[in-house]
Design a protein around this nucleic acid. Structure first.
Length: 490
RNA sequence: CGGGACGUAGCUCAGCCUGGUCAGAGCGCCGCGUUUGGGACGCGGAAGCCGGAGGUUCGAAUCCUCUCGUCCCGACCA
């Protein structure tokens, strides 16, 4: 029996993660370049779907795309003290070009606040130029010491929004607005619930006044920071002399924001939904929505079955779906089923002589209950109005994945008040989403991390996590205004 | 960057300790035939200068040094 076996999650979670990626042909380690990945067509198609959906949300909130150089003069980084301190250790630096040593070294952008700040100062003169709302889709490079495919690679693809505003109120509003755009995207498109919150000072972006984030629950109990939105205050405005004149003729520095999400989202997608059979994709991000497997014995059967399969495919394509008819010869249907399931295709249709007879097709969702014989449940769909039925199944599947992910997170979310229980929850590499009181000091935050490996993922925003109630810090016993979210993280 | 493991065919690995018919297996791939409603079978075939560079030796996949890369743990990480 020829089988391709994905390591089960229970055996070795990180091996499972890598197997899912390999068998779904999403990406692989470049190997020839340390810490970098090659995103293969199927993986890149997912990223393109993420981009398209998110980009529309950015446009809808008034942002425009632009593109800035990949190389940034080192002197730019140095203009914002905290920023350079935060990023210096992970910079890749270009020292030679055109066969000559460069007079001023460039770094390959780890993020673009600095070079965009430079151009903001050129482009912004008046309050009439504000707000300036830009976004850039690009690659960045951070020389990470330990990489994990999609989750932390030296080079990654992302989008970075950069905006400038006349007042702090306005820029803070933008920071929250874009965080909400991320949260909505995760829920509606990725079928992944997130906790919105504020980072502790320790976890803040280098050079920001405040960092907001979305934190997603992964199947092993760990948290994945899936997006951030920064209140940059006037820090970069001052560093790059980005000034504007207001209606009264007064000059002031602009208030800036930046916000980003990256190909890490593909990793989040995998760890939120996939199973031991491989990739599971929400229909809204699936490069292939439907795989049709024709089934036949004799040539006459094949002719009729394949013809009908192709006709159904055309009908579904007219509804905007991407459909594959798998009429490859010499591969048994079962093998095809496993292959499409590994690749995360949400819905499979099987069509054979029996179906032609009954004017139905058998449908099987990527995640299905098992019947009494231990086989995945399949549902017969009438060929008439097949588009309506397929559309409904895909919509339900999108919803199902969200509900399942939410339920899993809720099952593994606890409020804890005893230090012993807190320690036990994170013992032996385990993790959950734990809401506990914290006294707000960095010393306590680090002490907790030292003892448990759990970090403060965020201080939840209103509406996220338990309702605020005062209490005592889980570690120090000092007063605390509200519970914060603890988890191990990626 | 510290500790550990590893790198041999597209993939997973055996061989290395005890240098010399060790260039091997399974899967995958190609061809032909029989198959096809949950991972088919038979026969035939292609495919690797053993990660790279030096060194030891009559002789290196095997021993030594360096180097590149991957995985795990840690530190680091908007």
């Amino acid at each position: 029996m020829a089988q391709v076996k994905i390591t089960p999650r229970s055996d070795d979670y990180s091996r499972w993660y890598q197997d899912v990626i390999a068998y779904a042909e999403l990406a692989e380690q470049a190997g020839v370049v340390k810490g970098c990945m090659v995103i293969r067509p199927h993986g890149f198609a997912i990223w393109e779907k993420i981009q398209a959906d998110m980009d529309a949300r950015f446009k809808a909130t008034g942002h425009k795309n632009a593109s800035f150089p990949m190389l940034i003069p080192m002197s730019f980084l140095e203009k914002e003290a905290e920023h350079v301190e935060g990023f210096a250790p992970e910079l890749a630096i270009v020292t030679h070009a055109g066969g000559k040593e460069l007079e001023e070294k460039y770094c390959i952008r780890p993020t673009s606040e600095t070079i965009i700040g430079h151009f903001f100062s050129k482009w912004i003169d008046s309050y009439r130029d504000l707000p300036m709302l830009l976004n850039q889709w690009c690659n960045v490079m951070r020389w990470e010491l330990r990489t994990r495919i999609f989750l932390r690679t030296s080079e990654f693809l992302w989008q970075e929004g950069h905006t400038a505003h006349a007042t702090h109120e306005e820029s803070k509003e933008e920071v929250h607005r874009m965080l909400q755009v991320y949260a909505d995207f995760c829920k509606e498109t990725m079928a992944m619930p997130v906790v919105c919150g504020t980072k502790s000072a320790h976890e803040r972006f280098a050079g920001a006044l405040d960092t907001l984030c979305i934190e997603a629950y992964m199947q092993d109990g760990k948290a994945l920071q899936s997006g951030t939105s920064h209140d940059l205050g006037q820090n970069f405005g001052k560093a790059f002399d980005v000034m504007f004149q207001d209606q009264d003729g007064k000059r002031d520095y602009v208030w800036q924001t930046s916000w980003g999400t990256s190909t890490r989202l593909v990793g989040a997608l995998i760890m939120a939904h996939s199973d031991d059979d491989g990739l599971v994709l929400p229909p809204k991000l699936a490069p292939i929505h439907v795989a049709i497997v024709p089934i036949y014995r004799k040539d006459e059967e094949k002719e009729a079955v394949v013809t009908e399969a192709k006709r159904i495919a055309e009908e579904l394509r007219a509804d905007g779906l991407t459909v594959e008819v798998d009429d490859r010869e010499g591969i048994k249907p079962g093998a095809k089923y496993y292959e499409w399931e590994r690749k995360g295709v949400p819905l499979r249709l099987e069509i054979g002589p029996r179906d032609l007879e009954s004017k139905t097709v058998m449908s099987k969702l990527r995640v299905a209950e098992l019947d009494e014989r231990g086989r995945p449940q399949k549902v017969a769909l009438p060929i008439e109005d097949i588009g309506v039925h397929v559309g409904r199944l895909l919509d339900e599947f999108q919803e199902f994945l969200y509900e399942r992910a939410l339920a899993l997170r809720e099952e593994n979310t606890v409020s804890i008040d005893s230090w012993e229980e807190f320690v036990a929850t994170f013992a032996d590499g385990k993790s959950k989403f734990v809401y506990a009181h914290w006294d707000g000091t960095e010393a306590t935050e680090l002490a907790i991390k030292d003892a448990t490996k759990a970090t403060i993922r965020c201080v939840p925003l209103p509406g996220h996590g338990p309702a605020p109630e005062p209490g005592k810090c889980i570690k120090s016993g000092e007063p605390s205004a509200q519970r914060v979210l603890f988890a191990r993280n990626y």
